[in-house]
Amino acid sequence: MLNYIWSFLVTGSVVCALLLGNTQSLSQAVIDSTASAVELLMTMAGVICLWSGLMKIAEQSGLTDIFARLFSPLLGRLFPRLDKKGAAFKCISMNISANLLGLGNTATPFGLKAMQELHRLNGESDTASDEMVIFVVMNTASLQLVPTMLATLRGSSGSAEPFDIIVPVWLSSACALAAALLIACCGNLISRKRRL
């Protein structure tokens, strides 16, 4: 699936640039994109390494157990097959906590760790497990209690009330998350029925 999307983006852009006469800026984009990819990776490198380190400390000291217990009533229902004391469950809890606090970049290392644990539980298969689908989908719907970045941007643009959009943001994210989870769970149920 990602193969098709990526090829479509690349070939579609080339054709479009030819038709619109934007070939000059397209060539520039090819050159610039590698540099900006490396720049993005360097920014992520620091965040990922730092929080992977701190995550390891939290894991060893048993702090992640507390987070996992906090979220287990909710996450237990979404991931019924996962062991509530297992590493995957703890990583998912940490990822959700960081997301809720609005620490977008910090949530990523926890999420990547969670995926690695889920991958191990899935027998290193190249097909996504039910749990992976639900977990990734939860991360594509933005869950956050305090949209700090957004409010900062609004404030710097001269908004009188940078935080007054917070209630619609909550409601809209909740709907997006509900839609995503509904489809993910239905898809899981259908494929489980088919396997029986």
Binding site: V10, G12, S13, V14, N22, V30, S33, A37
Partner: peptide, 10 residues
């Protein structure tokens, strides 16, 4: 990043 910057500049 490559695919998206192509898309944006095309």
């Amino acid at each position: 990043v490559f695919a998206v910057s192509l898309l944006r500049s095309s």
